[in-house]
Design a protein around this nucleic acid. Sequence first.
RNA 1: GUGCCUGUAGCUCAAGGGUAGAGCGCCUCACUGUGGAUGAGGAGGCUGCGGGUUCGAAACCCGUCAGGCACCCCA
Length: 428
Amino acid sequence: MTAITSVKGTRDFYPEDMAFQRWLYASIRAVSEQFGYQEYDGPFLERVDLYAARSGDELVREQSFVFPDRSGELIALRPELTPSLARMIAARSRVLPRPIRWWSFGPFWRYEQPQRGRSREFFQWNIDLLGVNSPEADAEMAAIAAAFLGRVGLGPDAVRILINDRRLAELQLQSIGIPTAQQSAVFRLIDRRDRLGPDAWEAEARRTGLEGRQLEQLQAALADREAWRTSDELRRFFRAAEALGAAQYLEYDPTVIRGLDYYTGTVWEARDAAGEYRAILGGGRYDDLISAVGGDPIPGTGFAMGDVVIRLVLEKYDALPKLRTNPADLMIASFEVESLEPALQLAARFRSAGLRVEWYPQADRLPKQLKFADRQGIPLVAILGPEEIGSKQVTLKNMQTGNQESVAIELAIARVKELAAAQARPSA
RNA sequence: GUGCCUGUAGCUCAAGGGUAGAGCGCCUCACUGUGGAUGAGGAGGCUGCGGGUUCGAAACCCGUCAGGCACCCCA
């Protein structure tokens, strides 16, 4: 094949895909603003050093698109936003009023093996609350996630938000007698428990250096769904989440750890109830990140959601919205060569009045034009043929009801606006 | 980056060494001023790409690219 193919792991966005992206963005914006968050964005290109400091070096070493610029400096296509956020906050840490509530939606790149729910170029919603180190702030983040899920039609029966706290997890490991040096290895082990079978996991646990008694205690801790009660932070977290109306989505899950190294407190993720897909969204508390990139210490908490998994889950639960891909309020049909010019004039008048107007550009048969309008989902067709022109009228056909009426051309704009408003209401 | 599976029409899939098919979609017509329904007809393929085996390859072999599954990691 001589055709140049698309880059591995990238997606083409046809109009129907774009309609979904716009809908997703609109939903994200609505929920973010509902909680008073401000939109921002960082650059798509960053120095590799920004990520090297933290993130977990696998992310930058193995999974970033990195290239030297013309001066030889290593540049990365951003694999995540939180370090850029930390840099931006650090740069103005003395002047930004706190708390800082910011959200963003934009493209990211990771050099991964593409799979279902995983691409190399994806969009991600990031939302963070900085300057507040309280369980109630963490609960707000979870409540935002819950509000979003509810808004897009995914109820608590379809999606669960699973919560843990690394401070609690660390205490549990200490009480089992696992030395601090071994902690991150054990965290990684816990993180993989669902993916490995029980036998493979135990073998892996022994390889990590856990003795029989420690292994038993670890198993017991991971099975204890009530351990959150021993944590002040988690008790306050769940109480606040309850007050915020998000409790139905939430569950304490001691096996949730998350891979990123910079999390210092709560860690959590949302998964479909059947456990079929990857995490829909994930986040947690990161209290040391701002100081790590050179700012005053500012605590932070937040989460990120990719556009790929959420779409799969929406499809699975039949919650994908039916979206129009054609924005036109009406199409003008004119099927005699002599009526093309009056049709163009009418289109111009409609547009001047603020209407979105598509003009059918050929003198094709009327059935063909109506079929086109139907397939495009255009709600209204203005027919301007010799009969209408002769009587200075235009025929307006409602494509959903099939009703049509003749209107004097001077009155057409007002009438079309009425009809368009009536159309817009049910679908809004 | 590693292992396994799969690439046939726009989509979902048949044909498992001997002329490449179906359903859906698309186009045309019935209906040259009225869409969706129905019927009839039509277009569309170097079987992902490159090489090999064979009289003959969509099929068998090798490579490569892409997708899927698992690992790794994560949105």
